[in-house]
């Protein structure tokens, strides 16, 4: 991963504050979700995004109205970053009627047609052709929207990813494949699952350009995103961004994470944390005072607490919901 930039980047105070706020919302939301899980209010699988926040926030910064996004089951951050209501997301985690899927989807299966968020997919790799299909529709309909198709380093070994690369390039589909390489597919490190560890490079075999990006640096993510989006909107076909990132928590809530050392995690947290990075840029550059940032922290905390309260108070779905939404 790249080092922190030495010089102050060319970015406005407003933008930095926006990224700070959005990344912080995801982190605090996920911490709260972890708490609620511990209290038994969230059940089943719950995959937290803590550590990876810069990836979705940086890419959402280059999206425009009508652009689509689709991801795996580690999806809470993507939903918050694209503007979905934290209350609706948290209430889905608790399986309540106020959730985005009325409590019928859960942590891994949430959607918002309004925000063009197409899930939330529990089958590793399945979202890759699905995302290309969304891009196929945009191309067919003749607009210049793009689809951000997120998947992890684990999914990168699924065959359907390469079937999709082939067709996406063949048909010049406006899809950005975002590999969130957090270095562990559940408990298997990238090194233990492949000898070709430069994952974006696999796209070259299909003619798809791509690059590796410091996914812990929101500004680097945004810069790479701009390039990818420009490529897609110009009708040049897909682009691959391999985001080098790291998840601080286990694969899911039930993962003791014995496959890596505590030191490894601490080192990343200390040296590479994406939120601390932006906080440093703001304070060291004299763009924001501690008071200003504290006020934002407080504001975010209030939003997250409100979402948790909503998620606890929203009733469970009525039993007749069992039978609805099976057929349109």
């Amino acid at each position: 991963m790249a080092k922190k930039p030495e010089t102050r980047p060319n970015v406005s105070k407003e933008d930095l504050l926006k990224y700070y706020r959005e990344m912080l919302l995801i982190r605090r939301f996920e911490e709260k979700a972890g708490q609620l899980y511990g209290m038994g209010l969230i059940g089943g699988f719950c995959h937290l995004y803590i550590g990876q926040e810069a990836v979705v926030v940086g890419l959402e910064a280059v999206a425009k109205a009508g652009d689509k996004r689709i991801t795996s089951y580690r999806d809470h951050g993507h939903m918050l970053a694209c503007g979905m209501d934290p209350k609706g997301v948290m209430a889905e985690l608790t399986g309540r009627i106020g959730g985005y899927s009325k409590g019928k989807g859960g942590s891994m299966h949430m959607f918002s047609k309004e925000k063009h968020f197409y899930g939330g997919h529990g089958i590793v790799g399945a979202q890759v052709p699905l995302g290309a299909g969304l891009a196929f529709a945009d191309k067919y309909l003749g607009n210049d929207n793009v689809t951000f198709t997120y998947f992890g380093d684990g999914a990168a070994n699924q065959g359907q990813v390469y079937e999709t690369y082939n067709m996406a390039e063949l048909w010049d589909l406006p899809v950005i494949f975002v590999i969130e390489n957090n270095q562990y597919a559940m408990g298997t490190s990238v090194k233990r699952s492949t000898k070709s560890t430069t994952l974006y490079g696999r796209g070259l075999a299909y003619g798809i350009p791509g690059e590796q990006v410091d996914g812990m640096d929101v500004l680097a993510v945004k810069a790479a995103g701009e390039k990818a989006v420009a490529h897609c909107r110009a009708g040049k076909g897909p682009y691959i961004l391999e985001m080098m990132t790291y998840r601080y928590r286990g694969h899911s809530m039930s993962d003791p994470a014995k496959y890596r050392t505590r030191e490894e995690v601490e080192k990343i947290k200390t040296e590479k944390d994406c939120i601390e990075h932006v906080r440093d840029l703001l304070t060291q550059g004299g763009l924001a005072s501690d008071e200003e940032l504290k006020a934002i922290d407080k504001e975010i905390k209030a939003i997250v607490n409100e979402s948790a309260e909503f998620a606890k108070e929203s009733p469970e779905p009525p039993l007749n919901e069992l039978w609805t939404d099976i057929y349109a």
Binding site: G133, L134, F136, A137, Y140, E163, N166, M167
Partner: peptide, 26 residues
């Protein structure tokens, strides 16, 4: 060819692309 699309031999891939396209308004 826009509406009658020849695919490579890649059932899982094109079935997934088809489903995604149905979500995208087709």
């Amino acid at each position: 060819a826009r509406r009658v699309v020849d695919t490579p031999i890649t059932e899982m891939g094109f079935a997934g692309i088809g489903v995604g396209a149905s979500w995208g308004g087709l």
